[in-house]
Design a protein around this nucleic acid. Structure first.
Lengths: 118, 118
DNA sequence: ATTGACCCTCACAGCGCTGTCAGGGCTTAT
DNA sequence: ATAAGCCCTGACAGCGCTGTGAGGGTCAAT
């Protein structure tokens, strides 16, 4: 399957598909004329990438995490050391949430003040 | 007070103080020799900027919001139209939180799978 | 053979800050 | 007058993607 088709199937832009390849996340074969040629496995990999990205991982992190995940989203053996990475990631998310909840407090405080002033 | 002193007092880097000026958030006087000369009022303004920034506002937003806030963090009259802006901001924060909570779900799902696989 | 739709690579731009460096003046004390 | 320490402007770099454009092949149908 050529890049345009994959892009439509996956909802990932052509630009990004090429970028994923550049970063080593996808490695499609090439046709004689140099066109990228993706197979079904590649599509499944792409779904995994989207999943990991939706968990807030950047591409560097995904790159090390990716080999550890099967298409059905379960993890297999040789990746025990990634538990730490996962905990780090969760910690980052928690910190982000804490920050946002603080932001929200400040904003709501403003709103309260406005309504009590006018 | 010169920029270095303000930087230490406020905890804001010299680079950022100059940037705030460039963006119109601070307007210090100048000495005869061209040095920035900040007064106490400027320091108070800076505290307000920090507060707004901690609420997740970017400088563009702060720029329109700033004139509406007194040093004691209360809002005054002529800024009613900013209620919308505030609601928008809160909405953005809520969306961000929702996104993060989804991320966390995905991550915890991974963790669960790892622990049930090994 | 021509056209249109698709593909290729390379590379610049932009987000919203923030650091850092270069090249140069000012101030104060010795 | 010399040195240390501060200040000035201007400009480039980097984060982590993502879009877009240039310049140029390929493929399928007509």
């Amino acid at each position: 399957m050529k890049i345009g088709e994959l892009s439509i199937k996956s909802g990932v832009s052509i630009r990004m598909l090429r970028y994923y390849e550049e970063r080593g996340l996808l490695t499609p074969k090439r046709t004689a004329s140099g066109y990228r040629d993706y197979d079904e496995e590649e599509l499944r990999t792409l779904e995994r990438i989207k999943l990991l990205a939706s968990a807030g991982m950047n591409l560097n992190t995904i790159l090390v995490f990716l080999p550890c995940i099967r298409g059905d989203q379960h993890v297999f053996e040789p990746c025990d050391e990634l538990i730490d990475l996962l905990h780090d990631q969760i910690k980052m998310v928690n910190e982000e949430v804490a920050k946002l909840s603080h932001s929200k407090t400040v904003l709501e405080h403003f709103l309260y003040d406005i309504e009590n002033t006018k």
